[in-house]
């Protein structure tokens, strides 16, 4: 029991990552409103970013900036003293891409609202079916 608790606490970031990903999936699939779907998509994206940043975290390590690193001649550093910065750099790109997709999705939602005067998915499907016949 004690070991299980230790494992649960030491991996708590990954558990929260799984929960947030499920919440985002639920928002995308179950919710009928287009805005709610977009919010679910954003939560899904941030959960993946949380996973990647958690990979790079280390115990007893500091942020990856070398103090007095420039022009001292001591270029070699101990890698265990610094958090791994590679996932951070990857996720910097992911955040910018997330905002770009959010902007496009909201622009499409506004366009749909202007055309059909609703944001609910079931009402939209009804209107499109009526148009077909």
């Amino acid at each position: 029991m004690d070991e299980l608790l230790t494992i649960l606490i030491s991996r708590i970031n990954y558990w929260v990552y799984i929960i947030l990903m499920m919440v985002g999936m639920y928002g995308i699939i179950i919710k009928k409103n287009l805005m709610k779907k977009i919010i679910g998509m954003s939560i899904l994206q941030t959960s993946v970013i949380l996973f990647y940043v958690s990979i790079g975290a280390k115990k007893n390590a500091t942020i990856p900036i070398i103090e007095h690193g420039h022009d001292t001649g001591h270029a070699a550093v101990q890698a265990t003293h610094y958090i791994n910065p590679l996932p951070h750099v990857l996720m910097l790109t992911a955040i910018v891409v997330a905002v770009a997709t959010l902007g496009v999705a909201l622009a499409l939602a506004i366009k749909i609202y202007k055309q059909y005067n609703t944001l609910e998915e079931d009402e939209l499907i009804e209107i499109l079916k009526e148009k077909e016949f």
């Binding site: 970031n13 941030t46 970013i49 940043v53 958690s54 790079g56 975290a57 390590a61 500091t62 942020i63 990856p64 958090i83 996932p87 951070h88 750099v89 996720m91 910097l92 955040i95 910018v96 997330a98 905002v99």
Partner: peptide, 14 residues
């Protein structure tokens, strides 16, 4: 978690 650059970007952009 020590990802200060990601935190900056999230605060401004996210």
């Amino acid at each position: 978690m020590g990802a200060v650059d990601v935190a900056f970007t999230e605060a401004s952009v996210g």
